[in-house]
């Protein structure tokens, strides 16, 4: 093994990826596993968890799927305890689980606002807090939050989603400052338009319009987001913290 490969190796580490049954989360789980981590992927349903277990096995990755509701602190505590007992405490956390409830502001219901905030933002608080004890003890940790290009650009009909994702980026920077002394890095990855179930539902017309704004002229692949996450989790990325890595085909250059 070359030195570079050794450094990128996540052997012996346990990674926890929320929302891993499909799309970007699934690709991240496989990528971290490919780098040697034991991966726990979570889904809201038992069938989703089962799918993750099978997907990881097919990819030759050690780990399993588990059912988890990121809006429920008890569910989080229970799952964390099981993982810690069976595989060891996670020191890599990828907060990927998220939903959309799009609506223009004048029609947006309070439930639509609240559910997106709870699932996409408050969940990050809950998950991070639950994992920090083990990370500070280990004097090593990686928290990677999956944001979105809309956190910086905004998007019509997504005031709730954009607010949650922008909140996530502020959270990322604050936590990075709090935990730097314990060798825990906290970063975000902000995907542009990626070919997943979440973007599949957009009208064809809107997709074409969006692609026109991407210099690379296509949607991104989930694997291209996973590669960025894998890098941030790796040893060579040890000096990067509080950063948001933009992976968007150039649609939002900063």
């Amino acid at each position: 093994m070359t030195e570079q490969q050794t450094q990128e190796n996540l052997q012996g580490r346990v990674a926890l990826v929320t929302g891993a049954s499909r799309g970007i989360g699934r690709a991240i789980a496989v990528e971290l596993g490919r780098r040697g981590a034991t991966v726990i992927g979570t889904a809201t349903s038992e069938s989703g968890a089962q799918k993750i277990t099978e997907g990881l096995r097919e990819a030759g990755v050690e780990g399993q799927g588990m059912q988890l509701n990121v809006t429920d602190a008890d569910s989080i505590a229970q799952v964390l305890k099981t993982i810690t007992d069976e595989q060891g405490a996670p020191t890599i956390l990828v907060n990927n689980a998220g939903i959309t409830q799009d609506n223009i502001m004048m029609r947006m219901k309070e439930e639509e606002w609240d559910s997106v905030m709870d699932t996409n933002l408050k969940s990050v608080y809950r998950m991070s807090k639950a994992c920090l004890r083990a990370m500070t003890k280990a004097r090593w940790g990686r928290i990677i939050n999956i944001s979105s290009v809309v956190a910086t650009m905004g998007n019509m009909g997504q005031a709730n989603y954009a607010a949650a994702k922008a909140g996530m980026e502020g959270f990322t920077k604050s936590l990075a400052r709090e935990l730097g002394s314990r060798n825990i890095t906290v970063n975000a990855v902000a995907p542009g338009f990626i070919a997943t179930d979440m973007t599949e539902v957009l009208p064809e017309e809107q997709k074409e319009f969006l692609i026109k704004q991407v210099p690379l002229g296509r949607l991104g692949k989930p694997e291209e987001i996973a590669a960025a996450v894998g890098f941030l989790a790796s040893e060579p990325a040890a000096y990067i913290t509080g950063e948001t890595l933009h992976v968007n085909g150039g649609m939002n250059m900063r």
């Binding site: 500070t136 003890k137 709090e178 935990l179 002394s181 314990r182």
Partner: peptide, 11 residues
């Protein structure tokens, strides 16, 4: 001790 140290101390 800083604030994080005190949390770890309690742990």
């Amino acid at each position: 001790a800083d604030s994080l140290d005190t949390v770890e101390l309690v742990m």
